[in-house]
Design a protein around this nucleic acid. Structure first.
Lengths: 199, 199
DNA sequence: CAATAGTTCTAGCGGTGCTAGATTCAGTCT
DNA sequence: AGACTGAATCTAGCACCGCTAGAACTATTG
């Protein structure tokens, strides 16, 4: 019995090693450097071992993405709850999101740009993802003014995601990012003038 | 002399053929189907011919992207100028942008998601790109309220780009897209309540 | 110590982008 | 007309990719 569980433990540990190696490699040299051969060499096993843990390379990327989502959820939560008023919470969350994407571009890419088969906008979505999205919802709720905060959260998330990805591709200048974010947020925190009903 | 120019003409024509074939292939089967072998077969030449026209596969993708940008600029212009008031212009432009991305996902990907080496936010950017961006600037100007319209254009573009790409990856639901866009636009067209100066 | 079950590796398949060198073709000149 | 020549094009192959069948090795059991 014990010997069985020891093997399982070692197996689980090796799986973590693979994920960590993939993440490390991606973050230092980009995803194009993450090949099955290179990864196998890094963990000091042969290629087929990777396939005894994961269905394919995509599954490894997905595992890394999931880890990144967990990290992001934690950072968003910390940033939002550190603030003492709704405006600061929203600004803090947004800044933290952009900073995450800027500091871990490869990780961010796996999470939100690459095609991974994680369930997203469904009940089966991973817990960490729901939590991360929940942070957006919470931050945005004070400014919903009748709109569903979940939708507003999607809109803000998309707006930030767009800025981050376009910036990364050199499509919009990085220098004015702070200002760009600030302007976006002022538009977001506006009270709708037409519909003055609180509801 | 004439024979020289005829050759150049034929060469230019073949180059267009390659770009058209790449675009066609990408739009019908996705970019992963666009391999140099497949493309060569499609244009009925051998692989090395591709390399006498383009530096590499990436350059072919870039050429397709540039073509797409030209198309997009035209569609944005048509949508914006068809409207008779600023609000309708902004809405029309935004809807046209999203529709373009939805209807030509592969083309859109080459233009704004893939890593292509086109100069974007610089004076050396291709004319079509400047025009497309100019449509955003024009549509957004009535709502600038003191902010630089170019920056506001970037913000709107990024917001739309985010919605489009997250939707494409299944990260946000497609069903509510119209509503999501509408809400985004209401936030955009708000007059800033704090700074009532027109300036 | 031998048999067996499980694990890991070697070797290789069919694909990729790209290119050196052979070959074929077109234009030129006697 | 036909040999020459330079340009255009192709064949064949490189090093790499993701992935896997089957050999080889290891550890557990009888």
């Amino acid at each position: 019995m014990s010997i069985q569980s020891r093997k399982e433990r070692e197996r689980a540990q090796r799986e973590k090693l693979i994920i960590a190696a993939a993440r490390e490699l991606a973050e230092t040299e980009g995803w194009e450097a993450v090949t099955t051969r290179r990864l196998a060499e890094e963990v000091e096993y042969s290629q087929p071992v990777l396939y005894s843990h994961f269905k394919g390379k995509d599954a490894i990327v997905t595992a890394v993405a999931l880890e990144g989502i967990t990290d992001l959820a934690a950072e968003l939560h910390a940033a939002r709850t550190a603030a003492h008023d709704p405006a600061a919470a929203l600004a803090g969350l947004s800044t933290a999101y952009v900073a995450f994407a800027e500091q871990r571009p490869a990780l961010y890419e796996a999470m939100f740009s690459r095609h991974v088969d994680l369930p997203f906008a469904t009940p089966e979505a991973p817990q960490a993802l729901k939590e991360a999205f929940g942070e957006f919802v919470a931050a945005v709720r004070p400014y919903a003014h009748g709109t569903a905060p979940e939708m507003l959260a999607e809109i803000l998330w998309a707006a930030l995601h767009g800025q981050v990805t376009l910036m990364r591709g050199g499509r919009i200048p990085r220098e004015v990012q702070e200002h760009r974010l600030a302007v976006l947020l002022t538009r977001f925190t506006q009270e709708p003038v037409g519909s003055a009903r609180s509801r």
